[in-house]
């Protein structure tokens, strides 16, 4: 598994600081919460609500960085810092890329969770 999906160094550090058992629970919470953030991004984009869009991207970025999901975090960060485009096609392709990154991160985290 490539390291940029989940950076094993960051992940190990998190486990050392918070305990492996707790991190497994935390992954569970992230997997419950993240789909809601993706839905929120889509809905905010559709309504042209820049604040909500930025906030959802910001949250996703922070969580991704917590687990060492480097690529997902980088993509979410791009969304946070790029002004919400009026071009729905462009938003659609960006969010599709984000979905793919999330799916990869979620799969790896599920394995790591044990």
């Amino acid at each position: 598994m490539p390291d940029d999906v989940i950076d094993r160094g960051v992940f190990a550090e998190l486990q050392a600081a918070a305990g492996a058992e707790f991190v497994a629970e935390l992954i569970g919470t992230f997997l419950e919460e993240a789909p809601g953030l993706l839905v929120e991004l889509r809905s905010a984009a559709a309504q042209g609500d820049a604040d909500r869009y930025r906030r959802a991207a910001h949250s996703l970025k922070a969580n991704a960085q917590t687990f060492g999901a480097t690529s997902l975090g980088a993509l979410a960060r791009d969304l946070e810092h790029t002004p919400l485009s009026a071009d729905q096609t462009q938003i659609g392709s960006t969010l599709a890329a984000l979905d793919a990154q999330y799916a990869a991160a979620a799969a790896t985290l599920t394995t790591l969770k044990g």
């Binding site: 600081a17 918070a18 305990g19 919470t29 992230f30 919460e33 949250s59 969580n63 917590t66």
Partner: peptide, 16 residues
Amino acid sequence: DDNKVNRLLMSRNVEM
């Protein structure tokens, strides 16, 4: 914090 993952992790750190 508005984010649940952040809240849980921070609580854990504080408890530890």
